[in-house]
């Protein structure tokens, strides 16, 4: 009876998603370069992209691993300063711009991942709220280190004159690659191991999953992408100050993840987009906007505690399959629900 349900074969799924990513890139580029958007709007697009990476990367630890870190801005800071310093020193050299961008971002990610491991190994011995507090402490320590190591980082006035290399293309590609990479890791056996830790740590351990290894792995992966987002942030701002990476930044990212629904990548993407654009949209309300923002946050949490999307994830191929089968009376077979997860998400 499964034969009545039409499915899209695997290579075509990839093709559909690749086409969609390319189409969005083309459309976005056309809109930006046509000059319809004003400066504030096109810089908002970059900001949205950066926050999408931050939210999706935090979602690895919060949504998939089920821990609560409060120091994500610390990893972002590490990446931002690494990338900023690299780009500044590379600006005078013969290194071509595309190579500098890629090397800078990868370096930012690796540096942040190293910090992720350094912080993760001790922090992950603790559970729940204690983990939250210890990551908060580490985040603050990173910020204070940046303030005090003014020889390298520029201290409180900040790191200035970073080449502005985060163009729409760079940010878009980074977002797409990050989302696809995270999605693929989560669908692999490593991803399933991480999910099993969230569901039940003790049960996972008795099934032979190396808890500490996977916790640190998830932590480092999350830090890696936060570092890349930090690098993009450096190239977007052109100026880095320690106050941009304070506790409130970590909280903002966490709010995006929770509001979107923990464990839902689509939720993180949507929440990051909405929450980043909201202050600009509420600009006319001026002084009231932050008050409205906070009230909205409380109201959403009271009426929809699991976040806007819950754990639901969007899959284009799956949607198309549904459309293909809409004419036939559907029988709910177990095989079809098992296949649900096979579709690829797109940033």
């Amino acid at each position: 009876m499964n034969h009545t349900y039409k499915k899209i074969p695997m290579p075509i799924r990839y093709l559909i998603n690749t086409a969609l990513i390319a189409l969005l890139l083309y459309a976005g580029n056309a809109v930006i370069s046509s000059g319809i958007t004003n400066r504030a709007q096109s810089s908002l697009v970059l900001q949205v992209g950066i926050y999408i990476i931050l939210a999706v990367s935090l979602n690895i630890v919060t949504g998939y691993l089920g821990q609560l870190p409060l120091g994500h801005a610390g990893f972002m800071a590490v990446g931002a300063y690494t990338c900023g310093i690299f780009w500044k020193s590379a600006a005078g050299s013969a290194l071509p711009a595309p190579a500098a961008i890629v090397i800078g971002l990868v370096l930012a990610g690796i540096m942040a991942a190293i910090f992720g491991v350094i912080i993760g190994v001790p922090a992950l011995r603790l559970k729940g709220d204690y983990l939250a507090i210890i990551t908060l402490g580490f985040g603050e320590i990173i910020r204070i280190l940046i303030i005090n190591l003014s020889g390298i980082t520029g201290g409180t006035p900040g790191l200035m004159n970073i080449p502005k290399r985060s163009s729409f293309l760079v940010v878009y590609l980074a977002v797409a690659i990050s989302c696809i990479a995270i999605h693929m890791v989560m669908k692999s056996r490593h991803g399933r191991a991480i999910l099993s830790i969230r569901e039940n740590e003790i049960a996972a351990e008795s099934c032979g999953i190396h808890i500490t290894y996977y916790k640190v792995f998830a932590f480092a992966l999350s830090a890696f992408f936060a570092g890349i987002a930090g690098g993009l942030y450096a190239g977007y701002q052109g100026l880095l100050t320690p106050s941009g990476f304070d506790f409130m930044t970590s909280i903002n990212i966490l709010v995006m993840v929770v509001l979107g629904g923990m464990g839902s990548m689509a939720g993180s993407v949507i929440a990051a987009t909405v929450l980043t654009s909201l202050p600009l949209a509420l600009q006319s309300l001026n002084t009231f906007r932050m008050v409205i923002y906070s009230v909205l946050l409380v109201i959403i949490m009271i009426f929809k505690p699991s976040g806007l999307m819950g754990t639901y994830d969007f899959s284009l191929s799956h949607l198309l399959e549904k459309l293909l089968n809409i004419r036939q009376p559907r029988e709910n077979s177990p095989a079809q629900t098992a296949d649900k997860k096979a579709g690829k998400r797109n940033g």
Partner: peptide
Amino acid sequence: APRISLLITAIGISLF
């Protein structure tokens, strides 16, 4: 509700 929702609410109140 899940405890993290409560935490986010507390953060929202703090911001407010």
